[in-house]
Structures are given as structure tokens and as C-alpha cells.
Amino acid sequence: MRIINSFFYSLGQGFKNIWRNKSFSLATVATIASCVFLFGLFYSVVLNFQNVVREAQSSVAVTVFFEPGTSDETIVAIGEEIKKRAEVSRLEFISAEEAWETFREENLGEYADSFGDDNPLEDDSNYEIYLNDVSMQDDLVAYLEGLDGVRQVRKSAIVANMLTSMNSLVGYVSMGIIFVLFAVSIFLIRNTVALGITVRSEEIGIMKLIGATDFVVRAPFVFEGMILGLIGAGLPLIAVYFLYNRAVEYVMTHFSVLSTVLKFLPVEEIFMTLLPAALILGVGIGFLGSFTSTRKHLKV
């Protein structure tokens, strides 16, 4: 019962402290909110960019052609073996007829009729293999070239390499920027929380001299830090949510040409990670900032 009473008393004092020190509370919330807002914006951009790269990667395919006279059963068996590979996301069988039909439509136009019923691509039935990860293309190609009945393996090395490099680059740059943002956020927020506590060091001293334990002195400050962290993270998340939807709507309306290249992620998908990450960032830094800032004042 006493623990519950202490918990609610400390929580209540945390709220009262926020009200009593309005200016510092506001400064802390503003600092946390600015950091989380930047973090949220950047995270949304990075996630969408990675999505564009992923989409591009998923369209990269390796094509496998078979030796002339390979039976349909052998082709099906080869297809089953290829499907088992970890790097393969899906494969499509293109028959000789489908290959010739597509070629005719795309390249020959009115001259196609001169071929009559002949199919110059009758030995060109093939599998189009799409990958989970483009960087694994070389491994797959080496495997395919070693299969019996395979005549030729065609790959798009330049595109694959470029996408792989771009994905790595985006990964490294975004990790670096998130790390810097995180470090700056911790520094700014901790300083603001620490300043708010320093101006109340006398109050802490009084509490200690009349017999308050470190826990009793610290608990309201820690609750205060966590509440400010929660508010500071919650407000920019709401802003990012509405801004993101507005921005997507704006781009799609005013730059409709981009809609074929850019596929924006739904805001829910972004918030699946952003929401817990930002809340943990805000509340966690509020907790750590107030916990460590009170420590030096407790040595009375």
C-alpha cells in the first residue's frame, strides 16, 4: 500500500513540477519535440527511398535458356530446383510461343507477318528468375550455369551492382545521420532536463536534510522527465503523421509523372517502427536525463 501511495504521490509531484516550472518544461518539450520531429521526417524519407530501391531491385531478373531439345519434364524439374534457392523470390516460365509473341509486338510491328507461322525463337523458352537480394545475383548465376540442360544465363550486372551499391550507401548514410541526430538529441535533451533540475538543487538539498531517501527525491524528477519525454515525442509524431499524408497527397497531385517511379509507403507502415522508436527515444531520454542529472545533487 505504501509503495502504491509513494508511486502516485511521486507521479502527482511529477505533474506538479511540470506546472511549477512551466518555462523549463516548455523548453524541454520543445527540444525533445524538435529532435523527434527531425528524426521522424528523416526516417520517413529514408524508408521511402529504401522502398524505391527495393522496388527497383525486385524488377531485376536473371533469364535462363535451355539446350535445344530439352524436354518439358526436364524444364519443370529444373524450375523446381531453382525455386528451392534462398536468393530466389519467384520465377516465371516463358514459353517459346510467348517469347516470340512479345518480341514480335515490341520489335517487328508490320514486318512480323513475313515470318508466317515460323517461330525463330522455338528454342528460346526460358525462366525469368526474380531475386530476394540483388547482391546475391552472382552466386545464383554460377549455380544456374552449372545445371545440366542450361544453355545460357543472362543477367543484368550493371543494374544489379548499381542498386546494391545504392542500397548500401543509403543504409550507411541513414545510419550515420540517425546516429548524429540521436546523439544531438540526447545532448540537448539531457542538458535541458539537467538545467531544470539544477535550478532546483536547493529544493533537493532541503528534501535530503529532512530525511528523504534518494528514491523519494528522485522519483518525481524522473516521472517529470518521462512525462515531458512522452509529450515531447507525441506532439511531433502527430505532426509527422499529418504532414506525411499531406506531402504524399501533394506530390501525387502536382507531380503525377512521378507516380510511376515513386511508390510512397503508407503512413501506417512507417509508424509501425517510428512510433515505438520515437516514444522510446523521448521517454528513455527523459528518464535517463533526469535520473543522471539528479545524481550529483543527491550527495548531500
Binding site: E202, E203, I206, L209, I210, G211, T213, D214
Partner: peptide, 24 residues
């Protein structure tokens, strides 16, 4: 020990020249 100081102080009342009240 530091952890026992608070309990120790509870048996001592203390008054200062500058009162040291919580102003708020």
C-alpha cells in the same frame, strides 16, 4: 553508509537561519 543517512536524519529536526522552506 550513504543509503542509511536519510533514515538517520529523520530522528533529527533541523532549523536554519534562512528557513529553507519550499517556496512553491
Amino acid at each position: 553508509r550513504h543509503s542509511k543517512v536519510s533514515k538517520y536524519r529523520r530522528n533529527i529536526g533541523v532549523v536554519f537561519q534562512d528557513f529553507r522552506l519550499l517556496e512553491d
